[in-house]
Amino acid sequence: MIQVKDIKKNYGQLMALDGLSMTIPNDSCYGFVGPNGAGKTTTIQILLGLLYPEEGTVLIDDMEAGSHVRRLKKRIGYVPDYMGIYPNIRVGEYMDFFASCYDLYGARTHRRIEMLLDMVGMKGRERQMVDTLSRGMQQKLSLARALIHDPKILILDEPTAGLDPGTRYEYKRMITELQDDGKTILISSHILTDISEICTDVGIIDQGKMVMEGRLSDVLKKVNSSSPIIISIEGSLTGAMSVLKEDRHVRSISIRAQEILISYDGSPEEETALLATLIKGGIPVRSFHREKGNLEALFMQLTGLREERTVINYDTGADI
């Protein structure tokens, strides 16, 4: 388990992390999301032991980052958002070099290198020069390199950025397999659909603070309950509007084409009662459902961004 508690880090006047706390459970796949400059890379560098925080504690499997550096480095594999290649080096030599960086030599290590290259679909490419590989291949090689010492924790920084859909799909499949093998994975990414697909936990960071964290399913459940109810009406909306204005749980009303969007804070039973009132009032309701919450909407809500949507104020008819 990785526990980060109230860490602060500043670069001169700029406060990169302002009391950030996060918990990454064992065997989880943790999506770490946030806008540019939110402090993701600084957090990752602190977890990797490349930076120390000014305040706060970082515990990795109950060991504090900064002490027992060698033991911690053995437990962590890191895939940056860039490949980091040497010119004139072959794939096999590249893997051998990083194996030797972990003091791994001999036949067993060579078998592991073969197994890893096979896993990322690069078997038989040992003699190919690394700088002639495509970006997707380089990123896969980077993953194989990070797994050379069989780490318990894997930290991936923007692993699927710039990859084509096919390679992205393969990459996500490999990450899922690694998580099934019992690895704890931290993924920092801007691609929220990828995070929704592969992560079990999520943490959203903004301006150096954690604004929401938890199991992805719980977070999405919470987003769903705060999403607006969409009521689709056949014909005129006037009757429906007067009923909705009467309901004390309706916080706001907006219109999108032939749909009414309401912000509703009542219970599910009260939602049912509202639907029944609309039908009893002879209003032709075509559909009545809560908009499905997604990570992207939540991210934009929490980080102060808003989904672009044309909303018309019903009373004035003017654009808001």
């Binding site: 508690k5 109230d6 706390s21 925080p53 504090e64 900064g66 002490s67």
Partner: peptide
């Protein structure tokens, strides 16, 4: 690595750390 925590060498128990 840089930062003020550079000198810290002790392992604090989990309860103490939060």
């Amino acid at each position: 690595p840089t930062g003020k925590g550079r000198q810290r060498k002790t392992i604090r128990p989990m309860e103490e750390a939060g």
